[in-house]
Design a binder for these strands. Structure first.
Lengths: 226, 226
DNA sequence: GCAAAAGTGTTCAATGTACACCCATGC
DNA sequence: GCATGGGTGTACATTGAACACTTTTGC
């Protein structure tokens, strides 16, 4: 029934970004069987010489050419039938990137048919058990957002409180109260406030902030980042 | 440097209990190299025919002869050098059992040298990266305790609020206020109150409670339990 | 002067924390 | 009657939620 005699181990990486005011995930359309033409979370085999975080980092780089991003291990999927005709155990990760850091499509080269962002609310049919992986990823992302400053991974170095709030709203898929949100963020003491302002677009300039350093570095309980 | 050409996949299971008013973990003393005589978390290879939860359940059963316990996947460790001369990727789990469900030592048979409970505060030297696995497990256990009724896995079917509180205190390694603890637990609405009382040991009898069914079954977000 | 987004405080409810005494039983 | 653990309530501080108007700018 199973053709392979060994376990193969892959990493699959759920790559999130915010684009067009939506939470989107990067998917690749498969060029061959199984699940030809279905969309899949980017992944690849773990090499014998690398650890899991390194494998995830490498695969992420191969697919997106971005480095230095938030990467966190999620969960390991190993149902014997998740992958037809082989025993493939996959260690899933999630990553956050700024979508404009990524020069998609263009230099992606040859045999990848399609690589594209998809809103998490209108997903195509996914290959394998990737729907499960994605739902674990979304849950974890939202959890992290509440307790850690990961939002900084999706924002420019300096940002306005409104930008920050929009990021939270998009990820959590709710509206937040402006005053309460600002009060909360400021009281957390994780932001630096600058005397710089957006120079404007026909409205009142907004003050710029960033996350302070200690906050960012302490965020990584189980993060492979560097 | 690495002898193996393939990944081997194991599950390692951090098995907790409360014994002698301490949080303890089940360890096995290794009989051969590598790490001969060092203590290790129980584990075993994942068979091609079984999924990860099943593998964990099986290994747990083989080592302890207990079934129907709380089991939750923790994290996957895959450093190429974590296991000498082989590439062994391990999916870690944690489990909770009532220590008196386990008839240790006796019928454990032949070639296991030693299997024993160890307080998490006075651990022997551990093999491999098992210290890391254990610290992830402890963190996760404490997290779960705050949000889910896993404590019922460590208690008799019916228990007193004092027993419940002691369980929390031992796991969290803090003292809790009796009145606040009771108020909190009762206000959560997850307990059933009985008209039964401990018949006593020279003090006032205590009322018995249990966790209500829905609570217990909904606890398993990512639990392999049955 | 007006459109558009930035910025700001108070009230109320809910939740968490600190804390000390009486109760029921077995001996 | 006393030792042992069981059981209970109140006051205060902290946190989260609801809510509307003024400010600054570019045009």
């Amino acid at each position: 029934m199973l053709e392979s005699k060994t376990h193969e181990v892959t990493v699959d990486i759920v790559i999130f970004t915010i684009r067009k005011k939506k939470l989107e995930v990067l998917l690749i359309q498969r060029g061959q069987e199984p699940y030809k033409d279905k969309w899949a979370i980017p992944g690849g085999f773990v090499r014998l010489s690398e650890n899991l975080d390194e494998a995830a980092k490498r695969v992420l780089y191969e697919k997106t050419h971005v480095k230095d991003v938030y990467l966190e291990q999620l969960y390991t999927f190993g149902d014997p039938y998740r992958y037809p005709n082989a025993r493939v155990i996959t260690v899933s990760y999630f990553a956050l990137i700024r979508s404009d850091d990524l020069k998609l499509e263009s230099e992606q080269g040859l045999n990848i048919q399609q690589i594209n962002w998809h809103s998490i609310y209108s997903l195509p049919e996914l290959a394998f058990d990737h729907k499960d992986i994605l739902s674990v990823a979304i849950r974890r992302l939202r959890e992290r957002l509440e307790y850690t400053p990961i939002a900084h991974q999706l924002l420019p170095k300096k940002f306005t409180l409104t930008q920050l709030q929009k990021t939270y709203e998009v990820i959590l898929n709710t509206d937040l109260d402006k005053r309460n949100f600002r009060k909360k963020m400021i009281s957390l003491g994780i932001l630096n406030e600058y005397e710089e302002f957006t120079k404007a677009s026909s409205k009142r300039p907004a003050r710029l902030y960033d996350f302070n350093e200690e906050t960012i570095s302490s965020q990584s309980g189980f993060v492979a980042d560097n």
